[in-house]
Amino acid sequence: MSKNLPFVYIVDDEESVFKAVTRIIKSAGYAVETFNSANSFLSLQDIKHPSCLVLDIRMPGISGLALQETLQNKGIFIPIIFITGHGDIPMTVKAMKAGAIDFLPKPFDQKTLLDLIRVALTKDKLDQKRLNEKAKIQELISVLSPRELQVMKLVIKGMLNKQIAQELKLSIKTVKIHRGHLTQKLQVKSVAELVRLGQLANLKSSV
């Protein structure tokens, strides 16, 4: 199997179900890895991307819902499609609120499953791209001096050079020099670009 195939992880305690689902997904040209419990998935070292997780909402031990929460707490991003059964409505609502792609009530049609996987993989690609960007920006920001970072946060807040100088008790000239350095380091050409960068990096605008 080629390394670049999108990956679908399946976590389901029911062998007969995950075997059948695996067949469908494989026939659609994805790489598949199956786990029969939440714990065995959690012990997976490295999640490949783009990928998504097809997850049984109800399992003995750690439930699908609990696995979703654990992944979020660990800062692991992977789009989740839940497989749900009869009488799982309250759990499904929770899962959706926590950001699941969608849910598939059993028994489900292969087309619905594959459509959802496609949606999930697209989302994962975007997520990964955003995450990569964020990582890159954070790397750029990390080379700024503390003063430059202070100046940047105030620029994003919408302050003029004069106001910034006042706020930081610096001369306007010094502020201008810091601005020059930081725009050079961050390779931005406009204030608008700087603001977008700040948002992507989740920069708090407080000093």
Binding site: V17, A20, R23, G85, K106
Partner: peptide
């Protein structure tokens, strides 16, 4: 529902 799911998915596969 469990075996039904397995049956449907297998048949479609």
């Amino acid at each position: 529902n469990q075996p039904l799911t397995a049956i449907l998915s297998n048949a479609q596969a």
